[in-house]
Amino acid sequence: MARCCCRALLALCDRCQACAGLLPPGTCGPVCPDCAALLRPRLGGYCPRCGELAADPDAPPFLCNACRLSGRPWEGFAFHGPYDGLLRDLILGFKFHGRLGQGRVLAGLARDAYRRAVARTGEGAMDPAGPGGIVPVPLHPRRLAWRGFNQSLELARLLAADLGRPVLPGALRRIRDTTPQSQLPGARRRANIAGAFVADPALVAGRGVLLVDDVMTTGATIDTAVNALRAAGAARVDVLVIAR
């Protein structure tokens, strides 16, 4: 029986965690070369403060109108790529089907995006000293019971192991069970999420934190979460999402 389990584990290790195809000999990493090409990071044509995407992916990063005119409540920002194609499929598979192997792939993409943002300077650069703790965007307890796990918390745990920083799962709580943002038009999302979060000053006051989520679309959820952390006395908030 033990031998069968070992064989099954070895077979899983030989499979691409994105497409489940066999990994070519000598492949370094959890995904095959074809999937790695589809998961290349977005390195140009985006706003460094919020990740808003421009039409030309080869353009240098530049501030969007919203960030130039009114700024954002966070300091550093990082993301991996647009929410489409294979990246979107991996996020949905992890989030709604509990495919933990894909979660490890996504955590690796998020870790690399974080490191790129630490290495750069200027607008949207991460704190080079690193965060005092990693804060996942929480689910309401009712939604958590329905889904069975919080994808942002699982990503934060995987990141914490890589970055050597503690996860602070109790630092931010969702106190209102809101309609899922994905089900609402952009104009209604900010009102829907208003007042949905409260942060614990005992865990964040005077501390720099890294807020982690899977996807940022309009930014309403991230804005509200960051403002709650600020209200609780967080000294600095950086934001890391996988897709934009």
Rank of each mutant, 00 (worst) to 15 (best):
R3E: 14
R7C: 13
R7T: 12
R7L: 15
L9E: 15
A11H: 08
L12C: 13
L12F: 03
D14S: 15
R15G: 00
A18M: 09
A20G: 01
A20L: 14
G21H: 13
P25N: 07
G29F: 11
P30F: 03
V31W: 06
C32Q: 13
P33C: 06
P33D: 07
A36C: 02
A37N: 01
A37P: 00
L38Q: 15
L39W: 04
L39V: 07
R40N: 00
G44F: 10
G44H: 10
C47S: 04
P48H: 07
G51P: 05
E52N: 05
A54T: 00
A54I: 00
D56G: 09
P57W: 13
D58A: 15
A59H: 04
P61D: 05
P61F: 06
F62P: 00
L63T: 02
L63I: 03
L63E: 13
C64L: 09
C64W: 10
C67D: 02
F77K: 03
F77E: 02
L86E: 09
L86T: 13
L90F: 08
L92C: 07
F94G: 03
K95L: 04
G98D: 14
G98C: 08
R99N: 01
R99E: 15
V105N: 07
V105H: 07
L106Q: 05
G108F: 08
L109Q: 04
A113D: 06
A113S: 14
R116K: 06
A117G: 11
V118S: 04
V118I: 13
R120Y: 00
T121N: 11
T121H: 14
E123W: 13
D127N: 15
A129C: 12
A129V: 00
G130T: 09
G130P: 09
P131D: 05
G132H: 10
I134V: 14
I134W: 04
I134S: 02
L139P: 04
L139W: 08
H140K: 07
H140I: 03
P141L: 12
R143E: 06
A145Q: 14
R147Q: 13
F149C: 06
Q151F: 08
Q151I: 05
L153W: 14
L155G: 03
A156L: 09
A160I: 11
A160S: 15
A161C: 01
D162Y: 09
L163R: 10
R165Q: 12
V167F: 12
V167G: 07
P169F: 10
G170P: 00
G170E: 15
G170I: 00
R176C: 01
D177W: 12
D177L: 05
L184H: 13
P185I: 10
P185N: 11
P185E: 09
A187F: 14
R188V: 04
R188P: 00
I193R: 08
A194Y: 05
F197R: 03
F197A: 03
P201G: 02
V204F: 11
A205D: 04
A205S: 14
G208Q: 04
L210T: 06
L211A: 07
L211F: 10
V215I: 15
T217G: 10
G219Q: 12
G219E: 09
N227E: 15
N227K: 15
A228S: 12
A228G: 03
R230C: 06
G233E: 03
G233F: 08
A235E: 14
V237G: 07
D238Q: 13
V239G: 06
L240S: 05
